[in-house]
């Protein structure tokens, strides 16, 4: 089963990289892009019986390692249909 973990800086935390990317987009003429927040994306292949179990394991991984709770939060999506599919 595949879990996708999206790690982003908390809204209250300044994102110097995202700000720089936004400035670069403005230089390219994309004035419509008002703000950019940069984050991290993880795909976890998890040997789990149910989506709930996969989600629980992914959440533990995020709490312990993938995200730093001082500055980051995360969101998890579980893709149940990928069970048994070739990578």
């Amino acid at each position: 089963m595949r879990a996708r973990v999206f790690v982003t800086l908390k809204p209250s935390v300044f994102d110097p990289q995202g700000t720089m990317v936004a400035e670069a987009l403005h230089t390219l003429g994309y004035a419509a892009v008002k703000d950019v927040r940069q984050g991290k994306y993880f795909e976890l292949e998890i040997d789990a019986r149910t989506p709930d179990e996969a989600r629980r394991i992914a959440a533990e991984a995020a709490d312990k390692l993938l995200a730093n709770p001082v500055i980051e939060s995360y969101r998890i999506e579980v893709e149940a249909s990928s069970a048994g599919a070739a990578a």
Binding site: D15, P16, M20, N68, V70
Partner: peptide, 17 residues
């Protein structure tokens, strides 16, 4: 030390990037 929780807080990318 910050990641280990032996000191509080975290480091962000430098303001200047």
């Amino acid at each position: 030390l910050l990641e280990a929780g032996l000191l509080p807080g975290a480091m962000l990318r430098n303001r200047s990037v």
